[in-house]
């Protein structure tokens, strides 16, 4: 068992930036706004610790606003913990929200390159993989159309296809897959199963208990900004559903 994601007593609080998003307010009430700024913190995660091992597939459940997305952001390294220590070993690839990191005026083909490079791959590597990505996405002849013409389902397909075909070591999925049709969702689950067999570590936020039961080795229930329960998927989900 090789730990690849370690959260050691991690807390994260946010400043509420809306207090200072006007320069006018900052200048007119400098003293007040500074003290308001200091005091207005929102605690998203409080003192959480857990370890995820290589090849584990971990589901995260919890109410809206409980800190699930903050946890994924911390793993991806886009935000830093306020206190505590996070260790992540391996290349993290997040599945972006609908159309995130795409440019609407560019074709699907160009967007694959743009997105793949932004996700940390070289141009030549993305180009090598491009045919596979197009094939898996199932957008067909639309691939040479600007993606502003795509439906939301097609965008999700393309986005998911890019990430899973670029050999992630750690895959983060934030409730985006709910958009595609049934067939695509099945295709996604199959792909995730095959990535799991290859030893890819996955962290997966979802509200669909049947999906979680199908592919997860473990489920974390985040409630009230802490890990409320951590364990076997069927146990955690049944307690969660009863609560």
């Amino acid at each position: 068992m090789e730990p690849v994601i370690i959260f050691d007593k991690v807390s994260k609080s946010y400043h509420l930036y809306h207090h200072i998003n006007r320069l006018k307010i900052l200048i007119l009430k400098l003293y007040n706004s500074v003290s308001a700024f200091r005091s207005s913190r929102y605690e998203a995660l409080r003192d959480i610790s857990f370890t995820i091992n290589r090849g584990e597939v971990v589901g995260i459940i919890g109410k809206n606003g409980s800190g699930k997305s903050t946890t994924l952001g911390l793993i991806a390294g886009v935000i830093r913990p306020t206190t505590g220590k996070i260790t992540v070993r391996g290349r993290v690839l997040p599945v972006l929200e609908l159309g995130g990191g795409f440019h609407p005026e560019l074709t699907g083909r160009d967007n694959i390159l743009l997105n793949g490079v932004l996700l940390g791959h070289t141009r030549s590597h993305v180009k090598e993989r491009r045919d596979e990505i197009i094939e898996f996405s199932g957008v067909g002849e639309y691939i040479d159309q600007p993606i502003k013409t795509y439906s939301s389902g097609m965008l999700t397909r393309l986005g998911f296809s890019i990430v899973v075909n670029l050999e992630p070591e750690i895959l983060l999925i934030d409730e985006v897959l709910a958009v595609g049709d049934k067939e695509f969702q099945k295709q996604c689950i199959n792909k995730m199963m095959s990535l799991k067999k290859k030893g890819v570590t996955m962290v997966f936020v979802s509200h669909k208990m049947d999906e979680l039961l199908k592919i997860c080795d473990r489920v974390l229930w985040i409630n009230d900004h802490t890990v409320h329960m951590d364990g076997n998927p069927s146990e955690v989900t049944s307690v969660y559903l009863d609560s």
Binding site: G73, V78, G100, L118
Partner: peptide, 9 residues
Amino acid sequence: DSMVKKVNF
């Protein structure tokens, strides 16, 4: 913003 929020490039 959507890239900045999700990817650490």
